[in-house]
């Protein structure tokens, strides 16, 4: 009973829910601000993501007459709850060791595509031609970036499992304690290709330029999000912000979970700083500097580069 309450608190307050949302919205503001500075302009105020969500909450909700009402309303809720739960599985090194002690890497692997699936569900339910185009693009992108993700996670699990002698280690807590004892995996030469692959995976899964193909506003009028407005769109935005926290936190936990000292607030700040640096390198600068790929180019890009890099790591782990 106590465990259940504690788990729910972890999903609602720390590190899921409130904490993740605060960090993610702050990151989003910094992201837009820094992207603006890269393009030599001022950019929006730091409170802008909160203002956007407040604005969306005051707007009227319109649901198309031809849409499937239940699926249309459930899809953003699914995206939001899926990511709130997933954020509770992200360990904060030195502060919080994750929701469970076994197999949580697999749970994260299953929870991560939920926003994409919810987006596809909403697009299919909204009965709009442009949404359908966005739906097919979103599906193709998901197929493209899930393959390298699976191989990256497998490479990490196999490496840690091999060293500790259990075959494959799918517990994030054990992966963290292994790294605390033997050094971060990001500095491990065998894992370097996997880390690069993870960095390429990030803009694809977050749907930012150059991989914002499903939501391209000039081509498919925001694709799956076309028919959404008001509070439902706000839920999608919150879900996507939580996803930023999840994927960045997972990257830090897998590759650079080092702590500074035993004092937990310092570790918490250090974790947020590391997430921010990862975002700066993989999302913000790339977004500000690139245009958009075509869907076939993006698909083959993911099959050619991150998948092959992750495969190199996997094979090296297997043979060495």
């Amino acid at each position: 009973m106590l465990d259940t309450i504690l788990a729910i608190l972890h999903m609602c307050i720390f590190p899921g829910g409130v904490f993740a949302l605060a960090v993610a919205l702050f990151f989003k503001a910094l992201d837009r601000r820094i992207a603006a500075r890269v393009q030599r302009r001022v950019g929006p105020p730091l409170i802008q993501p909160v203002l956007d969500i407040a604005k969306l909450l005051t707007k009227e909700t319109l649901i198309p007459r031809t849409a499937h009402r239940a699926a249309f309303i459930m899809a953003p809720v699914l995206a939001f709850t899926g990511m709130a739960v997933c954020a509770a599985f992200i360990p904060v090194p030195g502060v919080y060791s994750g929701l469970t002690n076994m197999g949580d890497l697999l749970v994260i692997l299953y929870l991560l595509p939920i926003p994409a699936i919810a987006l596809m569900l909403g697009a299919a339910a909204s009965s709009n031609t442009f949404s359908s185009v966005g739906f097919s693009r979103e599906m193709l992108m998901t197929l493209a970036y899930e393959l390298p993700l699976i191989m990256i996670l497998l490479a990490v699990a196999m490496l840690v499992g091999k060293e500790t002698g259990v075959g494959a280690e799918f517990s994030l807590a054990n992966i963290l304690s292994y790294q605390a004892a033997n050094g971060s995996l990001g500095f491990h030469p065998v894992m370097l290709p996997a880390f690069v692959a993870y960095m390429i995976f990030l803009p694809g899964t977050m749907g930012v330029a150059p991989f914002d193909i499903p939501e391209a506003e000039q081509e498919v009028l925001e694709g799956p999000l076309l028919e959404y407005g008001g509070p439902l769109l706000a839920l999608y935005q919150i879900g996507s912000a939580l996803k930023t926290f999840v994927v960045l936190g997972l990257g830090v936990a897998l590759f650079f979970p080092g702590t500074l000292c035993d004092f937990w607030p310092v570790n918490l700040v250090w974790f947020v700083v590391k997430c921010f640096l990862l975002m700066l390198v993989t999302l913000t600068v790339v977004k500000a500097a690139t245009g958009r790929f075509r869907i076939d180019q993006a698909f083959w890009f993911y099959i050619k580069f991150p998948a092959v890099l992750a495969l190199i790591s996997l094979v090296l782990v297997w043979w060495l």
């Binding site: 603006a36 030599r40 302009r41 929006p44 105020p45 506003e217 000039q218 009028l221 925001e222």
Partner: peptide, 21 residues
């Protein structure tokens, strides 16, 4: 476009009429 930086007013150009203010 970025040169005139409409984003500093909090604006965003959106492709869907459902998102517009």
């Amino acid at each position: 476009i970025p040169r005139f930086d409409v984003e500093r007013f909090g604006c965003r150009y959106c492709g869907s009429p459902r998102h517009a203010d």
